[in-house]
Every structure is written in C-alpha cells, then in structure tokens.
C-alpha cells in the first residue's frame, strides 16, 4: 500500500509539472507580436439608410506583374462586413468572377468606373448585374510582404527525444487600398487605405514558441471596420 501511495504522489507531482508547462505554453501562445496600423479614409455620398436589398462585391486587383491581392484577404474583409451587419449582402468573390467570366479576369477587369458603361453595353452582362442588384463594387489593391528576417534555430532528434534551440524574428508589412465604386451612378465614392507592419518572434528552448504579429489580420480588421461603417445603416 505504501509503495503504491508513493507512486501516486510522484504521479501527481509529474502531472502538476506538466500542467504548469502546458499553461505557460498556452500563455505564451496567447502572446502576439506588436502591430502598428494606420488607416486613411476619404469617402463621400454615404448611403444614409444602408444599401437595402442591394448587394456589394469586394474584388482583388490582380493585374500587376509583381504582386496579387490575396484571395483570403478579400474573403476576410467580406466576412468582417457580414459579421458586422448581416443585412448587407456581400457576394463571394470567386462566384462573382465565374458568373461574369470573362469580364473580371486580370486582363479584362475594368480599371475605372467609366469602364462599366462598356460592360453594360453587352446585354447578358447588363442582365446579370440587374439580377444580382449590385450597388457597390469595392476594389482592393495591395498585398502583405515579409520585410526582414534574422536569427537561427537548430532542431535535433535523438533516442531520448527531439527539440529545438535558437531564436528567429521576421517582419511583415501590409499595404492595401480599397476603392469604392457606386455601381448605379458609375462613380468613385471613396478610397480607404491601410498600412500595417509588425514584428514576429520565435524563441525556441526545446519547443519553438511562435509569437506572431497578425499584420494581415489587423489590416483586414481596419479596412473591414471602415467599409462596414460606410455601408451599414446602423453606424
């Protein structure tokens, strides 16, 4: 009985140590790198009573040779607006592009609101726009890039286990600009831009602990908030 009891105490002490380790890891996991964000807004002709049963589409610019606005970033902004005001119908980007093929491919997409007229001259295109009741077309141009990285980390595996040791750090920067077109009036009604940057860290003592700066996520929230404020009737 005594022997069994001492085993139990050792087992409990081991469990507590593991518990503390896990808690410490979780706490560190919750830590995030710092992000700096700047938002500039210039909008006019805001819809005072919301957009009603009309719809909005958010599209990424992808005609530049050296970068493309990420599909997941566009989806993130759409989700942000839907979550903020579920009365706003935000069309899914890829569905819209497929529905309108080939008029919104990188080589054919309109670059200015004046190009809408040329699209509307095509009867099937005009009918499709009428079916989806599009009120605003929002173009997002920009991307997130890695600006710097340094540090080193060594990982190894042995008979007793595996582990890493070292430190790594890297920076990210986002630059996005949203251009809002009023589809009915075929005019540009606003521009919102956001610049975010942050530094991520990854110290490793046996286990690597990533402390990630949510640079793109912050850019999405900043831009999403401003667009929501513009489109929503409940602001």
């Amino acid at each position: 009985m005594t022997i069994a009891g001492s085993h139990g105490v050792v087992w409990l002490a081991g469990q507590a140590r593991w518990g503390l380790t896990v808690a410490a890891l979780m706490l560190l996991g919750l830590l995030q790198g710092c992000v700096t964000a700047t938002v500039d807004e210039m909008t006019f002709l805001e819809p005072t009573e919301g957009i009603g049963d009309s719809s909005v589409v958010i599209l990424g610019r992808r005609h530049a040779p050296d970068y493309e606005t990420e599909f997941d970033f566009i989806e993130c902004i759409g989700d942000h607006i839907r979550r903020g005001d579920n009365s706003i119908t935000v069309l899914h980007e890829l569905e819209f592009i497929n529905m309108m093929y080939p008029w919104f491919e990188p080589r054919t997409a309109p670059l200015g609101p004046q190009d809408i007229d040329r699209l509307m001259a095509q009867e099937p295109v005009a009918n499709q726009f009428s079916n989806i009741k599009l009120e605003y077309m929002i173009w997002i141009d920009g991307s997130t890039i890695e600006t710097n990285s340094s540090g080193s980390m060594t990982c190894g595996v042995g008979p007793g286990g595996a582990g890493c040791f070292g430190f790594g750090t890297w920076g990210n920067a986002s630059e996005y600009e949203a251009t809002i077109w009023d589809f009915t009036d075929q005019t540009e009604v606003g521009r919102i831009s956001t610049n975010t940057s942050g530094q991520s860290y990854m110290p490793a003592v046996v286990v690597p602990i990533p402390i990630i700066a949510p640079v793109q996520g912050t850019a999405c929230d900043s831009l999403g908030d401003q667009l929501l404020q513009y489109l929503s009737a409940t602001r």
């Binding site: 497929n98 309108m100 093929y101 080939p102 095509q122 099937p124």
Partner: peptide, 9 residues
C-alpha cells in the same frame, strides 16, 4: 478545373 461558360452575346 471547373471552367465557367462565357457571359456574352
């Protein structure tokens, strides 16, 4: 891939 039909006259 899935290829959409063109929307044109």
């Amino acid at each position: 891939g899935n290829f959409p039909p063109p929307l044109m006259e």
